[in-house]
Design a protein around this nucleic acid. Structure first.
Lengths: 337, 337
DNA sequence: CTTGGCACTCGGGAACACAGAGTGCCAGAC
DNA sequence: GTCTGGCACTCTGTGTTCCCGAGTGCCAAG
């Protein structure tokens, strides 16, 4: 039922359609790939493949086009990820190595990925949940205001301006800072709420209002999930491709953080590539598009995800290769810094 | 030669064309606006306006369309900025007031502006050049690495990881931090290089290599012009409008920081609106688009610019009103924080 | 199971006609 | 001098028709 030649035919159809963007017919197929059989035979195979839902014809008497199911089979069983060339790898490495801070890393990554794949690249900021407190800083701005800065070991910096209940002198602030740093240094962000829960009780009474104010801001900044920030680049690459669904919908989806989160959100483990094809996609505005996602992180912990979004009709082997490679290099960079 | 009725005709043409997106003819013109004369008269006026280059016909026997020169005259003399409604103002105010840090302010601003104008909004990060050092922080990360953080009074935070030449103990770092803060506190960023020039000489000899390393990073972070960061939003709004020039070019331009910089770059003083129409624009990829720019800042100093980019055929009074209003509210927010 | 032959279908492009909107110009009215 | 109505002209856009060609499905024979 799934004999080898039919699979070969499906592969050929996907490859041809991806490269020509035109429905592919039986005759052209035998000409371009040497399948060793006649067009008529291919037609029979195609009829079966169509019946099984792997391909479809846009209208009677046109060539065949892969369905989402067809692409799925292609990705799962008929293709293998295509590694990048040595030159490309070196280019990636040097480009990413030039980054000066975490913003820069993300920015460079997303641009790189967009350029490499000629599609829309999407990169999620490293989540803070898995990272650890490296330092807490309290900077007096004026008598009743101070800036609270939280630095993590992933290079992320959270900052908040805090309005104070009373005028507070610098010594107390300095003291509180010291206490906070002792208490939190190296502590995982997830465990911060526990760690600071009884902190006010251990302070002299006159420091408690100040501490309470600052702690509430601290906790709030953790809850804010500011880490769910996502950026994209390469929107210009959409202009060429024509979608079944309007370009507008795709652009709108890209600007909705929530939608992007859900797109990236459900990959499994680090270093595995997730491909979501067309209608497998939960969001209706993105029918006709596929997304290739990989996790990245420093060490063995997955920090966040990155990926590429493009028309269902994309070159999966190449795209997957690029996404995987970039994810690895970003992980390296993050681990090193 | 520029008699009143001709100007009225030009205004009517611009308004009609903006709202209908179709070349406007003499007959439709007298029907929609009560000009009190016959179509034939209008035709004569139109012939003159065309000869003077204010309008053009896409082809013989079609209606007229404003030229860039026509829009220019309209903006300069025939229109007045349309203020926002009270409800809109309140919405802006509450939306912007919810921002937690400078990134959030910029993010909210650009989205707000995009939504308000239904076009592409562009916002430049507040420049650091005019701002002052609020605090310098040195955070040891490991024996030979530390993080350098610079906080300015505009809420901007610059961070760099510094590789140290030698193992340095914490006391020296703390001391250097204290020295730096005394030296730089409240000092304008522009004058930082002067201030620190002789700093190593005033330190004990054993601290000099450390100081030199850190200072070089500090100076580098100032030179980096990281402040030229620009974000945009509302690309989806481009999908509807059809440009004479390809949508692709516009999207590409938007992703080129350099191009955006030049677009925003040459406005004059704070609180003045700059409008650049079609071919007045230096960048060839953006023919067919206009841009409305305003400066914003805290107090009387202009920190940066923001604006809206859309098709030449845009509703200038409304767009200008929105840009001006948002610029003012952002200025308020920044001044308050 | 494969193959060549054959009738059939349908989309896309070319050719064509036509209605409608808009113009320029001119002669006459105010 | 300025405005107006009339008129001939010139386009574009749209709808219609027609035909070619690519591609299919089916069938009978190898």
């Amino acid at each position: 039922m799934v004999d080898d030649r039919k699979l070969a035919v499906l592969r050929a159809i996907v490859e041809d359609y991806v490269s020509t963007n035109e429905p592919v017919g039986s005759k052209a197929l035998v000409e371009r790939h040497n399948l060793g059989v006649s067009p008529a035979t291919i037609r029979n195979d195609m009829a079966v493949l169509e019946e099984q839902g792997y391909i479809a014809q846009p209208h009677t008497s046109a060539g065949r086009v892969p369905t989402d199911k067809g692409y799925r089979l292609f990705v799962d069983r008929l293709s293998q990820v295509k590694p990048l060339s040595g030159a490309e790898k070196r280019a990636i490495e040097t480009f990413l190595a030039g980054a000066v801070d975490i913003d820069d890393v993300v920015m460079r990554t997303v641009r790189l990925l967009a350029q490499l794949t000629r599609q829309v690249a999407v990169v999620q900021y490293p989540t803070m949940t898995n990272s650890k407190v490296r330092h807490v800083e309290l900077v007096p701005l004026s008598e009743r205001r101070l800036m609270f800065v939280l630095i993590t070991n992933t290079g992320r910096v959270e900052q908040r301006v805090v309005e104070l209940p009373d005028v507070v002198d610098e010594n107390r602030v300095a003291h509180l800072r010291a206490v906070l740093n002792v208490c939190l240094d190296g502590c995982g962000l997830a465990s911060v709420p526990d760690k600071v829960a009884d902190l006010p009780d251990r302070l002299p009474a006159e420091d408690r209002p100040l501490a309470a104010t600052i702690l509430s801001v601290l906790l709030e900044s953790l809850v804010d999930r500011h880490d769910e920030k996502i950026v994209f680049a390469g929107a210009a690459n959409l202009a060429g491709a024509d979608f079944t669904v309007g370009l507008r919908d795709v652009l709108e989806a890209l600007e909705e953080q929530v939608v992007l989160m859900r797109l990236l959100g459900e990959t499994s483990d680090l270093s595995a590539l997730t491909v979501r094809i067309g209608s497998e996609n939960p969001y209706t505005g993105l029918q006709g598009t596929s997304i290739v996602v990989a996790g990245y992180g420093s060490g063995d912990k997955q920090l966040a995800r990155l990926g590429v979004l493009g028309p269902t009709r994309m070159d999966y082997p190449v795209t997957m290769g690029a996404v995987r490679a970039v994810a690895r290099y970003v992980s390296q960079i993050l681990a090193a810094s």
